[in-house]
Amino acid sequence: MTMTVPLLEVRDLSVTFRTEGVVTQAVRNVSFVLGRERLGIVGESGSGKSTTGRAVLGLVPAHGSVSASRLALNGEDLRHLTQHQWSRYRGRRMALVMQDPKFSLNPIMTVEKQITEAWRLHRRTTAAEARKHAAAMLEAVSIDDPERVLRLYPHQLSGGMGQRVMIAAMLIAEPELLIADEAISALDVTVGNEVLAILDRLVAERGMGLIFISHNLTAVAGLCDRVVVMYGGRVVEECAARDLAHARHPYTRALLAAAPSLDEPRASLASVVRDPAWLT
């Protein structure tokens, strides 16, 4: 009998940066396991949420050092990969969608080129075949006229459209794991919700695992199955997304109370008082 291997295992992940002799511990002993599900990582600036995502993808810059007692995709150890070996994982088996399509799309490449590039890097196909796949992928991200959009350059796309193209480019190689880092933070709320619906549907249809990194508790509660709350590089709480409103940790509760609410007027907002003990 074999045990099911989780899609992603992260145990005791730490990331340390050293700049001009100053050592910063960005991530401290973070552990979580991801199946074919949606995991949210929430926290404020500097909580280490993005660095955690980068470490999983082997994208921590050279002045940072990463350590973990386990970091595995489908049971395959990712800890000692060379740059060459990483290229077989990144793009092909795990992909990253970042905040602003303005910066993550190549401004002088057509949409077709950017999407098919990812496809042709990992598969041996003809240009015509790749174009067909790119058009189908654009349809999958709810773009109505893929043939027209394939010919456009990034500056001709709106923010929501750009983010759809980005998702299409990331998913065309059919990765098992998608990491979305503040993927809707630069978008208007109505457009952001459309992008969430697309992510939601694609993750379900393709049986992917999703790590959704965001400062937006509302978005995470709506999209994810489970939530990890990070503070000062640590996981302070993990709970089911539906229980986020009843979070236990004082930091999570303070974050919830600090946000103005449409539903209940609050005379003044609770300030987030930080306890140094959370970091020990």
């Binding site: 919700n193 509302t218 509660a221 539906r242 409103a245 919830l256 946000a259």
Partner: peptide
């Protein structure tokens, strides 16, 4: 109304939980 609905957050289709409102209990 569109803006209001969007601001209350994304809801998964057939979501078992309400998602919102996110007020501490």
């Amino acid at each position: 109304h569109t803006l209001l609905a969007a601001s209350r957050g994304y809801r998964r289709v057939g979501s078992p939980h309400e998602g919102m409102p996110l007020a501490p209990s």
